[in-house]
């Protein structure tokens, strides 16, 4: 952690614009910078028990009780933790065949998930099957590009949600993948898929300028990227404005270090995804400077930038 302490010290000095020493400025820095810890999973696919010890690919890996222990540990250490899932909660073990997703949602609720989005396999017992299980979830399903108006899911999702942590506003929205050709029509029924890029543009503009969010996160089940021009997290990142982080899913991609793309304004967008089956838990810590509005742009940002480039 010494890196971070040095960083904060330097930041404090830089922020004042002059060379100052001593504790008061370190304290100041602590007030200015808020650490937001984002934890994420995707495509857990009803994997509740760890993989069996004789599994050829993932022997003994995963498991909700193991994941919960890590999450508890992080929550005990960090003040501002948010836990998200990027869809395909359902389908993959007999727990889903027999209980239709009940236990998955109960466990995620117990683990304190803050939100999830909807994957294609979450329709595997039909849009009715999904709607019927939502009573087991204490967290919202967030999706802005599925129109459920004519389905039993009507009114049961939200397009976005704003979370507040230590004064930092975190706007979270969700995007679902095109269902036609991927999910049997009789399963998704009258669910209407709308263009993810258009909807993302509208929602992120709202989150940034109306809700005044400091950090904007997309829970996406679009998939990391494709050989063709099918819309993906990569395409979304490049064409977006105002998104800081895309937590992806669907393609079961193990991304150890989030990819960084430039958005339309040349700003960085992180794209993360942690494979599938709850084999890994992703963590991204954001350090948000909430009070920069009281400082001049030059005296803060440039010096932090200079420092940052040295690390």
């Amino acid at each position: 952690m010494s890196n971070r302490r040095d960083f904060l010290k330097t930041f404090a000095a830089s922020a004042a614009g002059i060379s100052l020493t001593g504790i008061p400025h370190l304290a100041l820095a602590k007030h200015q910078i808020t650490k937001i810890t984002i934890l994420h999973t995707n495509d857990v696919h009803s994997h509740i028990d760890p993989f069996p010890a004789n599994d050829p690919k993932y022997p003994g890996l995963g498991g909700v009780a193991q994941r919960a222990a890590i999450i508890n540990d992080i929550r005990n250490r960090e003040p501002n933790v948010l836990l998200f899932d990027a869809g395909d909660i359902f389908q993959g073990t007999p727990y889903f065949n027999f209980y239709g997703g009940e236990i998955e949602l109960k466990l995620m609720s117990q683990m304190g998930y803050d939100a999830g989005t909807i994957g294609n396999h979450d329709f595997d017992h039909g849009v009715e099957g999904l709607a019927a299980q939502l009573k087991n979830a204490t967290f919202p399903l967030i999706c802005c590009n599925y129109n459920f108006k004519k389905t039993p899911m009507a009114g049961k999702t939200v397009p976005y949600k704003v979370f507040e942590k230590s004064g930092v506003l975190i706007g979270v929205f969700g995007l679902g993948i095109e269902l036609q050709g991927l999910v049997d029509k009789k399963m998704y029924g009258e669910t209407v898929y709308n263009d993810p890029l258009e909807n993302a543009a509208i929602v992120t503009h709202h989150l940034k300028y109306v809700e005044k969010c400091d950090l904007i996160i997309c829970l996406s089940h679009l998939g990391y990227k494709y050989k063709d021009d099918k819309v993906s997290d990569e395409i979304l990142a490049k064409k977006s404005l105002n998104i800081d982080l895309i937590i992806g899913g669907h393609t079961h991609t193990f991304i150890n270090k989030p990819y960084i793309y430039k958005n339309r304004d040349g700003k960085d967008v992180l794209v993360a995804q942690v494979g599938w089956a709850g084999i890994k838990l992703g963590r991204i810590d954001f350090f948000v400077n909430k009070k920069s509005r009281k400082l001049t742009a030059e005296s803060t940002t440039l010096k932090v930038f200079n420092y940052a480039s040295v690390i």
Partner: peptide
């Protein structure tokens, strides 16, 4: 406000 740094862990 601005995000000044991020760290990731898997």
């Amino acid at each position: 406000s601005s995000v000044i740094k991020s760290e990731t862990t898997v």
